[in-house]
Amino acid sequence: MTSLTTSKSPTAGGTSSAPRGRRRPLSFERISFFAVFLGLPLALYIYLVVSPIIQAFYYSLTSWSGYDANPAFVGLANYQALIHDDLFWTALRNNAILAVVLPTITIVLALALATLVTVGGSARGQTRGISGGGFYRVVSFFPYAIPAIVTGILWQQVYSPQGGLLNGFLDAIGLHNLKNTPWLGDPNLALGAIIVVIVWSFVGFYMVLFVAAIKGIPAEIYEAARLDGSGRLRTAVQITVPLIRDNVSTAVVYMAILGLDAFTYMAILAPTGGPNNQALVVTQYLYSNFTQAKYGYAIAMGVVLALVTLLVSIGVLVSSRRQQVEL
């Protein structure tokens, strides 16, 4: 912000040469350029994104049932009711867990895999990944290509307490007393089981993202680190991570936002919020309020969730920006 004031303050030597802030005349060309390349997208953005957000905020102040055209204005009553709604707080807590755990696990795994297939290979000769790295890269991307809804149904069968793949495996390796474990039906297991599913479907995508970022780091840096005697773990933590910090923080934001949403996975794997509501998330609770003709109340939840999402995103981006590394 300081740069703003310096550029405006008069220079000590009197008249400045060729001021940077000189206006060029608004010719037809310039105006039409603005209109097409900025005005139009901005208009569309305001119409399709900003205006629905403003409308949503307005509806959150009404007792709209969802089916009439003249909703009654009730002020902040919906928000007051939210404060006293235990289920909402349960859902928000579960979202908070997801928003912390999902990015952590996904990114640590994705980073480890990305390091392996790019710089984790033989310690001799040129820096390279483990052999067959390209194959693993492609294979681990597969889950991301499956639509969330299909992933959900697939894992619902994997987790099935009667003849599911997971329990069958546990039975086969001798853990017979676990063969009927209700992974999605036990209050202590449900949320964890669903986290595994979400991590499974995203880890490949972030691995590819990190691989691309690591490929952008000059190989000399890794060679230098190796000559200085840095091991693989130390190289990953102290060389790779700081150099791809932008990608990591973007990944954190995306995964955290996913953790604050998670609707599709929950709708399949915990259709009523899971055992004891241990897997209830805000989007799901919000949706069930839609289905009970409480649109105003549901939208109020949506507004709160949007604010939380915004705060989380800003928090992550600001905190990562402060610690920028200069190469």
Binding site: F34, A35, L38, G39, L42, I46, S51, Q55, N70, P71
Partner: peptide, 20 residues
């Protein structure tokens, strides 16, 4: 400039397009 231009366009549309 673009903000003004952008705002002016959708105001009419925005009213017509609200959910109710």
């Amino acid at each position: 400039f673009t903000l003004v231009a952008g705002l002016a366009t959708p105001i009419g549309l925005g009213l017509a397009g609200c959910a109710t």
